[in-house]
Design a protein around this nucleic acid. Structure first.
Length: 295
DNA sequence: GCCAGCCTGTTG
DNA sequence: CAACAGGCTGGC
């Protein structure tokens, strides 16, 4: 399930392979996976940049060097099981490959970029330049967690705006901060010592600031370890990440907490599987709230 | 604000 | 064979 660190790893792995290559066209095996906005009828052009925003990856195309006009953008969201795989020689499209881009290079034989997605939740968009926001999900994205735009004041305001929702649901909301999924959410809450089912209004300012720092650290660590491959995530060359070795709570239920030795538990919060240490992450509801929950 | 549903392979 | 996995949308 590519989250921000996995998409960033895919971006970094594909960049040296794709820059300067010409996209000659595409084959679409599953039309429902491809979304076209605006007038991108003929998709050709030279790759000049790969960008990431939240969990979205963008591949920017321009015309040739003599005509440096930005032509269009290929945008991808991997959702649960999406993969973008580079092939330096022809091979039959694998099962669950929904879109294949044909790439050419004057010094090399034909190569391919396959969008493969077992569960078909992912999407590929063909967009005019600068029109990522045509996708409503992209348009609503909050700040990048590692950027200066995600300020303490901004995070505190978002917390205040949703007093009764749980902190877990808030962190997973892409409008609050972009790119966090279930893995890094649970890991950040553990590092901050905050129970995932805590109501936002019960968090102190200090806890909120600690949590923001924990999110930044866990996202940066995830990128540093080339993402998490506990099931089927791989980068653009099929390489696995290593962050699964650093996980403290995610999918660690029944194991001992690395800090206190208690057994890690798995519960459901907001309909999502949620992992935490019952000793390091206490609910700590106020008396007032506890009475409300009982009535 | 919650959660079913999308989809398919894996697990119990 | 049903339950489960998780990101996001949309219907309540």
């Amino acid at each position: 399930m590519p989250e921000l660190p996995e998409v960033e790893t895919i971006r970094r792995s594909l960049t040296p392979l794709l820059l300067g290559k010409r996209v000659e066209g595409l084959e679409v095996y599953s039309p429902d996976v491809l979304i076209e906005y605006g007038k991108v009828t003929v998709l050709t052009g030279i790759v000049f940049a790969l960008r990431r925003r939240g969990k979205y990856l963008m591949i920017d195309l321009r015309e040739d060097k003599s005509r440096p006009k930005h032509l269009s953008t290929i945008m991808v969201h991997f959702r649960m099981t999406g993969k973008l795989l580079y092939k330096d020689h022809f091979e039959e499209a694998a099962k669950h490959t929904h879109v294949r881009f044909h790439l050419s290079d004057p010094l090399q034989e034909m190569s391919f970029l396959d969008f493969n997605d077992l569960r078909r939740f992912g999407k590929v968009w063909l967009l005019p330049p600068g029109e990522e926001k045509l996708d409503p999900g992209f348009a609503r994205l909050g700040p990048e967690p590692l950027s200066d735009e995600w300020t303490a004041a901004d995070f505190l305001a978002q917390i205040k705006r949703r007093p009764r929702s749980t902190i877990k649901s808030l962190l997973l909301n892409q409008e609050v901060v972009a790119g966090i999924g279930n893995i890094y959410c649970d890991e950040a809450l553990f590092r901050a010592g905050i129970h995932p089912a805590r109501r936002n209004q019960t968090l102190s300012e200090e806890e909120v600031l600690n949590l923001q720092q924990a999110v930044r650290e866990v996202i940066a660590d995830g990128i540093g370890h080339q993402g998490t491959s506990f099931s089927d995530y791989v980068d653009g060359l099929g390489n696995k990440g290593h962050f699964q070795l650093q996980l403290r709570v995610f999918q660690q239920e029944g194991k001992k907490c690395s800090v206190c030795g208690s057994e890690i538990e798995k519960i459901r919060v907001g309909g999502r599987g949620t992992h935490f240490c019952p000793h390091c992450q206490q609910l700590g509801v106020t008396f007032l709230e506890a009475t409300k929950e009982l009535s």
